[in-house]
């Protein structure tokens, strides 16, 4: 009987601890979101979207940073997505039985988790040094490199979900291989691949480290891709670390904007994935 009670007790302790761990994880999520709303909401106003970053002590907003983030994220997505989809196509459609596919898959999974600041250093030596100055192009290239592994991973997974029967039916009609991929498989996997792109955008929208020494920052509004450009993450970094209260307030406002945009993208991607019957876990 004592053995039985002891086993019951151990069980209860372990299960309570696991419940506690889950509660703690969720608590952190809500603490962070709560702090963002608490500090960020008062900092946001219409002017945040229409005025450029101010000098300390002046009124201003984040318009130039928002513009920079949107433009660089867009360019990076436009460059990185086709590369990722084509690579994913090779892995899913042509890679069977070759030595190349497992190696690429392995390396891609490592790039997926590789430290993004190292990618920043890479782009610095490859683009910034030869050009001689920081630029929004360099920032976009760094972000594009981060897009590729995410898109490769999801597009391979999604293409693998397309039933072979569809492909075989198309081949049986005498359709050339490239047409089968482009017009049948891609079309069947379209929603899934869209979720991959959304997850990639969510991943790079908040990336700060690779932009620190590629796009740098800009105190003023600039649409020149060939020069330094303001962007939300780096502005948040500089303003939050500054001693000025009004800069810190703007940093919280920017943090709120960026987090909710990213959470929105993530949840949207999940809905799209569920709707199309795929899964994006891992």
């Amino acid at each position: 009987m004592t053995l039985y009670t002891r086993r019951r007790a151990t069980n209860l302790v372990i299960l309570t601890l696991s419940l506690f761990a889950t509660g703690l994880g969720l608590l952190f999520l809500f603490l962070i979101l709560g702090a963002l709303l608490y500090h960020g909401l008062p900092a946001l106003s219409f002017g945040t979207f229409t005025h450029a970053t101010p000098a300390p002590g002046n009124q201003g907003g984040l318009s130039n940073a928002i513009y920079g983030s949107v433009v660089m994220t867009a360019v990076a997505t436009l460059v990185g997505t086709p590369v990722g989809i084509l690579t994913g196509t090779y892995l899913a459609e042509y890679g069977r039985g070759s030595w190349l596919a497992p190696v690429v898959r392995f390396v891609n999974d490592i790039l997926l988790s590789a430290p993004s600041i190292v990618i920043g250093v890479f782009v610095y030596t490859l683009v910034v040094v030869p050009m001689g100055h920081f630029s929004a192009w360099a920032g976009s290239i760094a972000l594009a490199i981060l897009v590729v592994p995410v898109v490769v991973r999801t597009s391979e997974d999604m293409l693998n979900l397309v039933p072979s029967g569809l492909r075989e039916a198309a081949f049986a009609l005498g359709t050339p291989g490239w047409k089968v991929v482009v017009m049948i498989t891609y079309r069947a996997a379209l929603q899934g691949m869209m979720t991959g792109v959304m997850l990639a955008v969510a991943r790079i929208a908040g990336e700060t480290a690779p932009l620190l020494f590629t796009a740098l920052n800009n105190q003023f509004s600039s649409a020149n891709m060939n020069g330094p450009m303001a962007n939300l993450p780096v502005v948040i970094f500089q303003f939050a670390m500054s001693p000025y209260a009004d800069w810190q307030r703007l940093a919280w406002g920017g943090a709120l904007l960026i987090t909710f945009a990213i959470l929105f993208l993530n949840i949207g991607a999940r809905f799209l994935a569920n709707w199309s019957g795929g899964s994006t876990s891992r």
């Binding site: 939050a240 943090a255 987090t259």
Partner: peptide, 11 residues
């Protein structure tokens, strides 16, 4: 996991 690193930093 989706919350960006910089948000963890400021928090």
């Amino acid at each position: 996991a989706a919350i960006p690193s910089i948000i963890y930093g400021i928090w």
